[in-house]
Write a protein that binds this DNA or RNA. Structure first.
Lengths: 225, 225
DNA sequence: CACATCGCTACACACATGTGCAGCAAACAA
DNA sequence: TTGTTTGCTGCACATGTGTGTAGCGATGTG
């Protein structure tokens, strides 16, 4: 269960892990083969020997990440009793890489896997809703996954806004409590939602005619787009 | 009101706009001075002449973005009647740059401005809640802003998941309708929320003891971290 | 022993890129 | 006129970086 000692890993695995760390830290473009080699304690030539090119190294990292996420998803399905935070801590070392990969357009398989998993939970949750949502569960799962991923992707900004380092246990507690609060309160009332829906249906998407519509006071829609 | 003709802009402004486009498209590291100069229709030397260095050019872009956002925020405060989608379309050309800047750790001022604006709306919304949240509004505003920013930051993945291009009016409609659905339904029931809160309080943050806790069936907490 | 394979190092090359700099034409001032 | 500033171009330089390749020791393997 414990993380294997880095000394025990093969050089290839050490290079891959170093690459994920460096890619996550500096981004793909700024991370260098030599920097990765140094972090892994090998020569730069060995990186090329094992992976061929920087792009191939990146793809190997993506594949490894996908494998990890698949395993965690499988665990989450099989043993939901371990609690929601076990996967979170397991992913922590790869979180920065995941965030970078997602924002650079890669890691599509990882995102899609998360959507699928989220969707399976979504349908369960829908049954408990008094006013069931009308949108396709897959669509809601996609957006919900993206919104959930905002936390790792924008963690530095969140930490700054909260005034605590959310990678520390104390900050993580604050963050999780706030998330529970957010997830357990609707942001929009049913009447406001209906107004916005009407505005969306009524006016053809493009020109927002000033002063005519119901002018829904939606706090979020300016950030949305 | 209409966007000024690119021909009318000074070369300096054209360079800045081209830089924001290139930075947004390729990221800061991969975007090149020469590419920016070509996109702006000037020589690469002029870029240096006006901005001194690539880093200074980036800072000028950030400053310009901050200025734009501040103006939009001011509009949103003064004329809430123009509807929620006017700012969205105004930001569209700069959205990719914003997303890049945020994930690369820059654009802090922009994020913090959004949090402040969101907070001011948060307190209004809280008054209408039947069960008011217990978390600090600033904290919820921070996380809410981050989650809202997930849409532009992860737009490519969302479009793929939805099967439509969400930059097109059709896809945007689908996205907005789903957002209204999500924002108007609580994700967690009050009982589930209480369970998670208890779990968060009861066990000291770190070791999740398998099988002991109430095992809240939270679909999102695995993506969160 | 002879030979092949594998993991690995060291070094060199080609190239892209940020930066520095000289200079040119036009506008403007003295 | 003459000098100066401004906006702008073109080119050369140093450097960092991905990539190619030769070679070395250890480990099997016939």
């Amino acid at each position: 269960m414990a993380a294997p000692d880095p000394e025990d890993l093969t050089a290839r695995a050490r290079i891959r892990d170093a690459a994920m760390q460096q890619f996550g830290e500096h981004g793909f473009a700024r991370a260098t083969i030599r920097g990765i080699a140094e972090a892994a304690g090998v020569s730069s030539g060995l990186v090329r020997h094992h992976f061929g090119s920087k792009q191939a190294l990146r793809e190997a990292c993506d594949a490894h990440l996908t494998k990890l996420i698949r395993a965690l998803n499988a665990d989450a399905r099989s043993f939901p009793a371990v609690g929601p935070r076990a996967p979170s801590t397991a992913m922590r070392p790869y979180e920065r890489y995941l965030a970078r990969a997602l924002t650079e357009g890669a890691a599509c398989a990882v995102f899609d896997d998360m959507v699928t998993l989220s969707e399976s939970w979504q349908v369960e949750a829908d049954a408990a809703q008094s006013v069931p949502p009308e949108t396709d569960p897959r669509v809601r799962a996609t957006i919900g996954t993206a919104m959930a991923l905002a936390i790792p992707v924008l963690r530095s900004h969140i930490s700054r806004g909260l005034g605590v380092d959310t990678t520390e246990p104390e900050g993580e507690r604050l963050l999780l409590r706030a998330l529970v609060d957010i997830y357990s309160h609707p942001i929009l009332g049913t009447d406001e939602a209906a107004e916005i829906r009407a505005a969306l249906d009524g006016t053809p998407p493009h020109p927002p005619r000033p002063g005519t519509g119901p002018a829904p006071a939606d706090a979020r829609s300016d950030d949305d787009e």
